[in-house]
Computed example of a mutant assay.
Amino acid sequence: MSKRLSDEDQRRVDEYLSAPQHRVERKPFRPWLLLAVVLISVIGMGLISRLLSLLVL
């Protein structure tokens, strides 16, 4: 596979990525928490819509 960047450009990219503002510690991604939040949101909005339909009709 051929290189996409020249050595100088690759050095600039490495410098940029190693700067302190780009070294942010992040928590690990938790897909089950995301799924739970989405499900709770959908169920909650469904219940609210049913409540509103009962109040309107």
Rank of each mutant, 00 (worst) to 15 (best):
M1H: 08
S2F: 06
S2I: 11
S2V: 09
K3I: 00
K3V: 00
K3W: 00
K3A: 09
L5N: 10
S6D: 05
S6A: 02
S6C: 01
D7L: 13
D7G: 03
E8A: 12
Q10L: 11
Q10G: 04
R11W: 01
R11D: 09
R12I: 11
R12G: 05
R12T: 15
R12W: 08
V13H: 04
V13D: 03
E15F: 08
E15H: 13
E15K: 13
E15N: 15
E15T: 07
E15I: 03
Y16Q: 08
Y16F: 13
L17R: 15
L17C: 10
S18V: 02
S18E: 01
S18Q: 03
S18K: 09
S18I: 04
A19R: 14
A19Q: 13
P20G: 11
P20E: 15
P20M: 10
Q21S: 06
Q21P: 00
H22K: 13
H22D: 03
H22S: 09
H22G: 07
H22V: 00
H22L: 12
R23H: 12
R23C: 11
V24A: 04
V24K: 13
V24W: 03
V24E: 14
E25W: 03
E25F: 06
E25M: 05
E25N: 06
E25C: 01
R26A: 09
R26Q: 10
R26C: 07
K27I: 01
P28K: 13
P28L: 02
P28R: 11
P28A: 06
P28Y: 03
F29K: 07
F29C: 00
R30K: 14
R30A: 09
R30G: 04
P31F: 03
P31R: 11
P31H: 02
P31A: 01
P31S: 02
P31Q: 03
W32M: 13
W32R: 14
L33W: 10
L33N: 10
L34K: 07
L34F: 06
L35E: 00
L35C: 04
L35W: 10
A36V: 13
A36L: 10
A36Q: 05
V37L: 08
V38N: 03
V38Q: 04
V38R: 08
L39W: 07
L39Q: 02
L39N: 03
I40Q: 01
I40R: 01
S41R: 06
V42M: 05
V42G: 00
I43T: 12
I43C: 01
M45G: 04
M45C: 10
M45A: 09
G46R: 03
G46H: 02
L47K: 09
S49G: 09
S49K: 11
S49V: 07
L51V: 14
L52G: 12
L52K: 14
S53C: 02
L54N: 15
L54S: 14
L54D: 14
L54M: 08
L55N: 08
V56Q: 14
V56E: 14
L57Q: 14
L57G: 15
